[in-house]
């Protein structure tokens, strides 16, 4: 659907490139979770894809005419207009007509639960409702590629599930989605593929299942330094642990090993801050991969 070849970008006056050597293929029906700490290059990549920034280096190859749906972080609508007026305005700007227009408008109103808000001025909506309107306007556009940038900030839990469902629906319909959010559980839910940017380069580009794996691991965190004897215990159990900023993570372990560790923990004076056994979450992996930075 879209191929990025050796994409690079440097902002004027900046000593290091914001993006460098990005090669990426996006397939129809795929949702790419775009991760990276602040300054990693996510915004620059989205700006290049949306045409907001002109290409400096590399190529963007679209398989078809580029068409883009956009849900930016900002509340990109007219606060002085009513909800219906905003939706109608953007329907006009997207050149929607006839039954397609009516159908898409109703679909977006339903998905974003805006039916009873249509007559209200957009500036009078709550923060979460405004977010839903912003989402609806992006969703209204018929496109092949949708960019979601922190699209659900401030949305209540119920509405968020509905919006994430809409993103999943898009990929089910064969649309391509790039989804970036600091809510990693959202990315974990909607994305099939994770791309981690670090200092303008791709640090990791993996299928989600491949990344998270099927093994159950253990996450341990203490209020202070790890208790004495833990390293020896892990060595005796032949386990390898990865150090995290506040504790450690053991990628895979069996029942015996889990029992030995929990007995060790129970024998300590203080309780740990966290003891979690199961499949690692994307957040845990992300923290590990990104040096503990969100």
């Amino acid at each position: 659907m879209l191929e990025l070849c050796n994409l690079g970008y440097s902002y004027p006056g900046s000593s290091r490139p914001a993006l460098q050597g990005i090669d990426l293929q996006l397939r129809a029906g795929e949702c790419l979770g775009l991760l990276g700490s602040n300054g990693a290059g996510k915004t620059t990549l989205l700006s290049l894809l949306s045409g907001v920034l002109a290409l400096q280096q590399g190529e963007l190859r679209w398989s078809d005419h580029p068409s883009l749906g956009l849900v930016p972080q900002q509340l990109a609508f007219y606060a002085g207009l009513k909800v219906r007026e905003n939706l109608e305005l953007f329907a006009d700007l997207y050149r929607l007509r006839g039954s397609e227009r009516r159908q898409r408008l109703q679909q977006c109103i339903d998905i974003c639960a805006l039916e009873d808000k249509l007559a209200r001025r957009s500036e009078q909506l709550s923060g979460g409702e405004q977010r839903r309107l912003n989402f609806a306007i992006g969703l209204l556009q018929p496109a092949e590629l949708y960019l979601f940038d922190e699209a659900t900030v401030g949305v209540d839990a119920g509405s968020r599930q509905q919006l994430l469902g809409a993103v999943e629906q898009l990929t089910a319909e064969g649309k391509t989605v790039i989804y970036t959010s600091h809510y990693l559980e959202e990315v974990e839910r909607v994305a099939q593929r994770i791309l981690l940017l670090h200092e303008g380069q791709v640090r990791l580009d993996l299928d989600k299942r491949q990344l998270l794996g099927d093994d159950h691991g253990l996450l341990l965190e203490w209020p202070g330094p790890p208790p004495a004897g833990l390293s020896e215990l892990l060595a005796r159990l032949q386990l390898t642990a990865e150090a995290l900023p506040k504790g450690l993570r053991i990628a895979a372990l069996n029942g015996q090993q889990l029992l030995a560790i929990t007995e060790f923990v129970a024998a300590q004076d203080g309780l740990p801050n966290l003891l979690r056994f199961g499949r690692p979450s994307l957040e845990q992996l992300y923290l590990r991969l990104n040096g503990g930075r969100l």
Binding site: G51, V52, L70, P72, Y78, A79, L93, I137
Partner: peptide, 17 residues
């Protein structure tokens, strides 16, 4: 200014207006 600050101008730009 409001159009630019709210991001609506970004939307309009991306539409190829």
């Amino acid at each position: 200014q409001r159009e630019q600050q709210s991001g609506t101008l970004l939307r309009l730009r991306c539409l190829g207006l």
